[in-house]
Structure formats: C-alpha cells, structure tokens
Design a protein around this nucleic acid. Sequence first.
DNA 1: ACTGGATCCTGATCGC
DNA 2: TGCGATCAGGATCCAG
Length: 272
Amino acid sequence: MPELPEVEIVCRNLSEILQPPTEVQGWKFFRKDLRFVIPQKKLNSLIGKKILSISRRAKYILIEFSDEVVISHLGMTGQWRVEKSGWQKQKHDHVALQYSKDSHLVYSDPRRFGFIEFIKKSELNQKFESLGPEPLQKDLDFNKLTEKFKKLDSTIKVALMDQKLIVGVGNIYASEVLFMAKVNPLKKCSKVKIDEYQKIWRCTQVVLQKAIDQGGSTIENYKNSFGQSGDFQSYLQVYDREGEDCLTCRGKIRKKVLGGRATFWCATCQKN
DNA sequence: ACTGGATCCTGATCGC
DNA sequence: TGCGATCAGGATCCAG
C-alpha cells in the first residue's frame, strides 16, 4: 500500500491531529507483535509526555518526543485512523494511542508487515544511515544519483525501488515514473543514458508530488487517518493495466515480474 | 559487493 | 458454491 505519497499524507494527518501540546494519555495493545515485538513498556514510558512533532523519513513516520522517537512503518497494509469515543475494536486493530479524553489513533494492519519502534533521538541518524536521499528535497543531487545508478547491474525498475539508493518509490510509482520518463523498466542501469536519468529524477519528483496533491493512491485498502481514500489511482498510466491500451499511444501495456514485483510498461512508448 | 529469490502475514480474486 | 493457487502498496535475510 503505502509509498512515499501515502506515508506523507498520513504524516500530515497525524501532525494535524497531534498538534502540540498534545500529550500521550495512554496506549492500548491488542497484540504483542507486528513485524517485530511492540515495545509496550517503552511506549508506556511516554505517557504524560508531549508530542513535539511528526515527520517522515523515507516511508517511516517519526513521532518525536523530547528525547525519544517512535517510528511507525505501515508495511503493505498499515493504517492509522482516528476514533472518537465509543469505538469498537476491529479485527486487525493492534495498537491504539489515546491522545485526549475520548480520542484514539488506532493502528490497524491486516498483514502485519508494519511495525512500531522506539528509539532514543541520539540513535536516529544511525538508524537511517543506509537510506538514500529524499526524492522531493529541493537540492536533490541528480548528478550524484546518476553516477551511482550508472554503476549498477540491476534493471532500472528494481534500482528505483531500492531504498538504499533513493527512498520513497515503491512498486506502483516505479512503473509510473518510468512510463512518464519513457524509459523501459527492463533496461540495465548501466545502459540508461544520462539524459534519460535526468528525466527519471524529474519524473520521480513530478509523479510523487502529484500523488501527494491527490491524496495518494487507493488501490486496495489505503485510507488516510480520517478514513478517506486517495485519488491518484485514477491517474495511473500503466500500473495494473496489463493488456490494456496505453492512454498516450494506444500501444499495449505489458507486464513482467522483476525482482519479484509486477512491473508494467507501454511496449511502444517505452521501447528503448 | 552485488543480485535475485524466499520469507513474513492475511485477505481478495481467479481458475477449475 | 467450493477450494486451492496466486497475488498484493515493503523490507529483510540468505545464498550464490
């Protein structure tokens, strides 16, 4: 589900809901593990403490306290949703953060690929040291990225999804970005031309920004914290459109599994 | 040091 | 209608 745009939307929702000086009133735990064991004791130690800010790094949501950071990753199917008084626990609700007398933020996640971690602020840099740059940062260094990608042996599609190289691009947006850049996803990184890389970085920014502006993509179950779906799915050009006509040239949309993930492209627009 | 594949988990969908 | 196989927005671990 959630790639950079969806995580960004959830972050913005959480920022709005947990505006300072919101304090943690309590936690409810309905399960002891997600992808990892939930650090219940450490989270409970935050009761009474103020939430200072909510931010995003890659596809991670960071809830910042004075000395600690709670990290939430949504995996494939994680959601944080607001519940007011009298909410009924649903099947896949695993954790709830009580942030006012009768309000909770509930973490639900059917597949439980997501996780909640607790770390000291001082450990934050180390935690994320292997992550690539944020694609939407204003001073994203296109040349440095291109240089790094040029050396790789993998396909451009697989590399684009590698969080060590550049963060935030997942399976949907990788196909969409390459369509917009008119680059064949099967092409080896070393064969992609310099001007094609320029287009790829630019299109990555355009696609991700537009997806954020549209509230993300709702394919199966993505909802923001207020239960609303995104709109970007109606702008998808190739993802999940195998056998259909390209919306630009009427060529056929193809599908191939790369690195274990379904990959879509237009056989005509992205011939190269 | 890289790359590709298997793996974690539940639910929806597809084909027989 | 039923049932098994396959697939799904992610990231990590392991073998080659």
